[in-house]
Design a protein around this nucleic acid. Structure first.
Length: 982
DNA sequence: TAGAAAACGTA
DNA sequence: GTACGTTTTCTAG
């Protein structure tokens, strides 16, 4: 080798794990063989090799090898038996891919290197140093920090997923130390995933600072006594040997007795037929086509290779192929023409998206009317356009439009080939310079906002042009305040939620990373963060273009990937009936807001403050000193230290718990202080969270409070509410309920609250098909009393309250995936007794046990569970070997179909409600949703009719999709405030 | 100044 | 035992 040679060393094992987690699951169509990581690997290799052929690209390999871990036992285990001891077994759908990726490497005609007793990292280190000695340059294809110690001026790393080089300055930027200090750094910080101990209490920041100050690990350990911080000094002294051991573990071996030299890895021409045979066997159609083109091979002539598959114990692919449910739509024109199934299309799109380059240099900045018209006209040709707004606030009810971006992908009319995505940003209200004396006038080069809005209105309100947005509800609200109502739309966040709830976030950054392997420009990179943050109108237009147009670009690409999956995976109707129509429904609710009486809150705030102050005096008196009552730490010291009260449970950080439960128990034993603390906490909670905070949410323009509902935040399908959260307004205590009296209606109106009675137990009776429960609901019985009667043999008539209470707790426990531990906790009884209750319950209602067991089994098998409407909630961790975590996932999986079906039922009611009220000629307006309750503002003289319409819609909302085996019952009341209406 | 932990409000 | 969001305190920076 010589100095012009360039060796690429690919960390094959590292790549497998990263690709498995980062890339969408993918299975071979023929048999469901999981091949997501293999696909990513092949695409990555092909890209690298294509660049090698194209000498115009800067860094091109002349030599290349793929390095793998051989087995889990290495020389490090002899040094330290605990090394990597806490690793879980790889996921079962990854197991067959280990062998396949080695096969892939050979199909690419590349050396596939591994050696017993050494990790891939050690082999990489050895070859890199050999090449360096020969004067050549090396690129290590990996982003693993364990390899960063190898970086020099002739050795760099390359992160293929982020398309980024990692050289010495990048290491410094990321870790605060140069590559040659990475070993010392890792010796100090340790590594929990590899079980490398390090020194407790020292993280990367501290380690970098210490190494900066002392130079290297040995000096630092020698002079540890000089360190000022007590804990830090003690730890460095006590754990010095542990740090030295860690250093041995993290130091890569550069003298592994390897059989080959880097020169043996010379890159030869591709064997087109051999590679194509493998790719065909895997079913990678897109890549097959590309390779065929590049190698001038006729792919049709080549038979798929025979590839041996080691499936592992019980390997099973994810469910990309379950496209045969009743929800599946007929294949679209596009699919029919090409003879593709929806699954094929989904896979091809995922493939293409993961490999596409995102070119921010090509984004347009549109500054005049003609250019905008031209762009929109071109977008209209395609029928699909991504849309995103930039504004001055995260609060859609206060946000002012600053600009918007659009993106579309042109199709060639003749060849039907797709061109590159075209994206633009249209600045409208950017300010010039800082917010100076002039108040920051409009920046130059922006088109008149009225003109832009007029053009935008035509586009957004045209239902024949599909608008794609990420979290459309926000943009819908902003645009609605400018008199524009979006029609004809898809929301990538909601599509992703229907497909992948529970598999990770549905935010744009997460989706972009997951599907495009691309990290978009962070908002704070353009607008700053913390104190130096500015609103978007103060962002320079040029920087705004790169950020904003990229969002539209990415949104469009995400839609291309995600939309076909809906049909392929049988989730189109979930999206179309339960997700998409919620956007305008919630948009209107949020925009209406609810009236909150400032005076009432202010008076309550005063009352709470007085009550709390009185309690404070008593608390200090009883404690014998002043302290911060709000600090659980200080409170714990007073109660369990100074006063010597018996401590109950501990928190997970080892502190004594001072939870209400613990304090109640102490109070029951006759201690005065804990009682006062509980009361004080209640008052201060009510004051700070509600009476003090709510007035700040009264919108200055509308004088109402506008919560924000998140549609894609929960795993089960429930909504969540924030800013402010109006789904947790107190109701359980008399004091707390007073806050509800501040939620009022306009004069001449009433608030109507309509809530489903026992909806989750009714859903349980339906899904588990329990005759006794179904009968009890059909007869309108008191379900908890009935349960108690069945379990304890007590007649319902004159039943003691305590007996009913226990049955009620058990009923709830069932919904929550019951455990003896949890039930014992709830009822304050022994675990054994709780266990007996559960046994009795299961004996009396055997169908429940069957339901719970079959739900668990289904979840384990498929990785998700379903509601009665087909919504899926994913629990990928349900197969973990950690018993605690697994049990938690099992309980969640048992609960999700129940909670989720109830959530679907109320969603269906909400989607129909506005139309139903309109058709009945009623002016009532839906304001709030609280999981099983809807709150309306209703003209006084329409209250009775409204209640009839509302309860009718709610009670029948499962129809016609599902005929419930149990009637749904809704209670509704009207009053002047929420407390009395509820 | 940002993030984790503890506590607590709802269904 | 399920599902959330907000507040305060505390820690590390």
């Amino acid at each position: 080798m010589n100095k012009d040679d360039h060796l690429f060393l690919i960390d094959g094992s590292g790549y497998i794990f990263r690709a498995y987690h980062a890339l969408p699951p993918l299975t071979r169509k023929a048999d469901g063989l999981p091949v997501g990581a293999v696909s990513g690997f092949c695409n990555m290799l092909w890209k690298l090799l294509s660049e090698a052929r194209d000498t115009s690209v800067g860094v091109t390999p002349t030599h290349l090898a793929v390095i793998f871990d051989h087995s889990s036992k290495t020389f490090r285990n002899e040094l330290y038996p605990e090394y990597k001891a806490n690793r879980d077994a790889p996921p079962e759908d990854l197991i067959p891919q280990f062998g396949l990726i080695r096969e892939a490497t050979r199909a690419f005609n590349l050396p596939c290197i591994e050696m017993a007793g050494f990790e891939a990292d050690d082999l990489i280190a050895t070859y890199a140093r050999l090449a360096e000695a020969a004067g050549a340059h090396t690129t290590i294809v990996s982003s693993d920090k364990d390899l960063m110690q190898l970086v020099t001026d002739r050795v760099t790393m390359y992160d293929t997923m982020k398309d980024r080089q990692i050289a010495a300055p990048d290491v410094v930027e990321k870790w605060g130390v140069p590559p040659d200090k990475m070993i010392d750094m890792q010796s100090l910080t340790g590594d929990s995933t590899d079980n490398i101990p390090g020194v407790p209490g020292i993280g990367p920041k501290t380690a970098a600072q210490l190494l900066e100050a002392y130079g290297d690990l040995d000096t630092l350990l020698e002079r540890a006594g000089e360190i000022k911080q007590n804990k830090r000094r003690e730890n460095l002294i006590e754990f010095a040997d542990q740090a030295r051991l860690s250093r041995e573990l993290v130091t890569l071996k550069t003298d592994v007795p390897v059989a080959d030299t880097p020169a043996d890895f010379h890159l030869d021409a591709q064997d087109g037929p051999k590679l194509i045979a493998f790719l065909k066997a895997m079913g990678f159609n897109t890549l097959t086509r590309r390779v065929a083109e590049a190698t001038e091979t006729d792919a049709a002539e080549i038979e798929p290779a025979e590839v041996a598959v080691e499936w592992g114990a019980d390997a099973r692919g994810p469910d990309l192929d379950r496209g045969d449910g009743p929800d599946t739509k007929p294949a679209s024109q596009e699919q029919k023409e090409s003879g593709w199934t929806p699954g094929d299309l989904a896979r091809a799109r995922a493939d293409a998206a993961a490999n596409a380059k995102i070119d921010s240099a090509a984004y347009l900045c549109i500054r005049d009317s003609g250019a905008l018209a031209q762009f929109i006209a071109a977008a209209r040709e395609t029928g699909v356009v991504a849309f995103d707004t930039e504004t001055t606030s995260l609060d859609a009810m206060q946000a002012e439009l600053v600009g918007f971006s659009l993106a579309y992908q042109p199709q060639d009319a003749v060849s039907n080939a797709s061109g590159p995505v075209q994206a633009c940003y249209v600045p409208l209200a950017h300010k010039s310079g800082q917010d100076d004396l002039l108040g920051g006038g409009l920046a130059e080069g922006q088109m008149p906002i009225d003109d832009a809005l007029a053009q935008l209105k035509d586009l957004l309100e045209d239902p024949s042009i599909l608008k794609i947005a990420q979290n459309l509800k926000y943009d819908w609200l902003v645009m609605s305040r400018y008199g524009i109502e979006v029609h004809g739309y898809d929301d990538t966040m909601l599509i992703s939620y229907a497909l992948d709830a529970g598999r990770g976030g549905q935010g744009m950054d997460a989706l972009s990373d997951r599907w495009l392997g691309h990290k978009p420009i962070a908002y704070k990179e353009v607008a700053g963060s913390g104190k130096s943050a500015v609103t978007f109108d103060f962002v320079e237009i040029d920087r705004a273009v790169a950020y904003a147009a990229e969002d539209a670009d990415i949104t469009l690409r995400l839609w291309q990937v995600l939309k076909p999956r809906l049909a392929a995976e049988g989730l189109a109707s979930v999206y179309e009936r339960l997700e998409r129509p919620m956007v305008p429904v919630l948009g209107r609710m949020e925009r209406r807001g609810i009236s909150v009486d400032r005076q009432i809150l202010s008076r309550l705030s005063g009352d709470f403050a007085q009550g709390a102050a009185a309690l404070e005096d008593e608390i200090y008196e009883l404690a014998g000193e002043k302290f911060n009552i709000g600090s659980p730490k200080q409170l714990g010291e007073i109660l369990f230290g100074k006063m010597g009260l018996p401590g109950g449970s501990k928190t997970k950080t080892g502190q004594w718990s001072t939870s209400a439960q613990v304090l109640e128990d102490l109070a029951a034993e006759g201690h005065d202080l804990p009682r006062r603390i509980v009361d004080w906490r209640q008052l201060t909670k009510l004051k700070s969270t509600y009476t003090d905070a709510l007035p700040g949410f009264i919108n200055p323009e509308t004088a109402r409070v506008h919560t924000s509902y998140a549609l894609a935040a929960t795993t089960t399908g429930r909504l969540s509410s924030s800013d402010p959260n109006l789904q947790n307004i107190p109701v359980r205590t008399a004091e707390g309920r007073k806050i509800r009296t501040a939620f009022v209606c306009e004069p001449g109106n009433k608030l109507v609250s309509a809530d489903y009675s026992q909806i989750e137990l009714r859903v349980l009776a339906h899904v588990a098909d329990i005759d006794a429960l179904k009968q009890a609901f059909a007869d309108g019985m008191d379900i908890h009393a009935m349960t108690a009667s069945e379990m304890f043999g007590v007649p319902v008539k004159d039943m003691p309250a305590e007996v009913r209470r226990r049955a009620k707790a058990i009923n709830f426990g069932i919904i929550y995936g019951i455990s003896a531990f949890g039930l014992a906790n709830q009822l304050g009884i022994e675990r054994s007794e709780a266990g007996e209750y559960i046994k009795t319950y299961f004996q009396r209602f055997p169908g429940i046990k069957d339901y719970m067991d079959s739900t668990k089994a289904f979840a384990r098998e498929h990785g998700y569970v379903e509601t009665i409407f087909g919504r899926r909630a994913h629990y990928p961790d349900i197969t973990t070997s950690n018993p605690h975590m697994r049990a938690f996932n099992e309980r969640a999986a048992i609960n999700a179909p129940i909670q989720g079906s109830a959530a679907d039922i109320i969603r269906r009611a909400m989607v129909r409600m506005d139309t139903a009220l309109d058709e009945a000629g009623l002016a009532a307006r839906m304001l709030l949703q609280v999981h099983d309750e809807l709150i309306f503002e209703v003209p006084e003289d329409e209250v009775d009719r409204t209640i009839r319409v509302v309860t009718g819609i709610m009670e029948n909302s499962a129809m016609p999709a599902v005929a419930m085996k149990v009637p749904l019952k809704v209670d509704a009341r009207a009053a002047d405030n929420w407390d009395e209406a509820h």
